[in-house]
């Protein structure tokens, strides 16, 4: 089972993504902030990471750098309520940038797409 890690400080979102991505047949690993994510990452290697940007403590962009340090080939999706970070060149290191919405179709497609590329 492919493992998807979701890092978001909003409990509602974590819960929602867990539900939706489980329905899609993934194993979902949750982290509420950057530090927790790094800790978990040391023990469990996810196949893909979905990152929020605005988080207390270590923000998503900083976490993105740390995650890529540990695994250069890991696909990362930035998932933010703001579109403005799209112009922050640090986010270009991520493989995709998806704006938060109640319709998770785009997010689901991106996860699938990136996992398929990784397999090839």
């Amino acid at each position: 089972m492919e493992k998807v890690m979701v890092v978001d400080d909003d409990e509602g979102i974590r819960c929602l993504y867990e539900q939706v991505l489980s329905d899609e047949g993934y194993k979902v690993i949750l982290a509420s902030d950057g530090l927790e994510a790094v800790e978990i990452f040391k023990k469990v290697k996810p196949d893909i990471v979905i990152l929020d940007i605005r988080m207390p403590g270590m923000d998503g962009i900083e976490l993105l750098g740390k995650v890529l340090d540990m695994d250069r080939k890991l696909p990362v999706i930035i998932n933010s309520a703001y579109s403005m970070y799209k112009s922050n060149f640090l986010t270009w290191m991520a493989d995709a940038y998806v704006i938060k919405s109640s319709d998770l179709t785009e997010l689901k497609l991106k996860v699938r797409e990136l996992l398929d590329i990784k397999k090839e």
């Binding site: 509602g12 929602l16 329905d23 938060k100 919405s101």
Partner: peptide, 12 residues
């Protein structure tokens, strides 16, 4: 965020 959560859980 709450709005997308509401929408998401309703879809669920």
């Amino acid at each position: 965020i709450p709005l997308s959560n509401i929408g998401g859980f309703a879809s669920g």
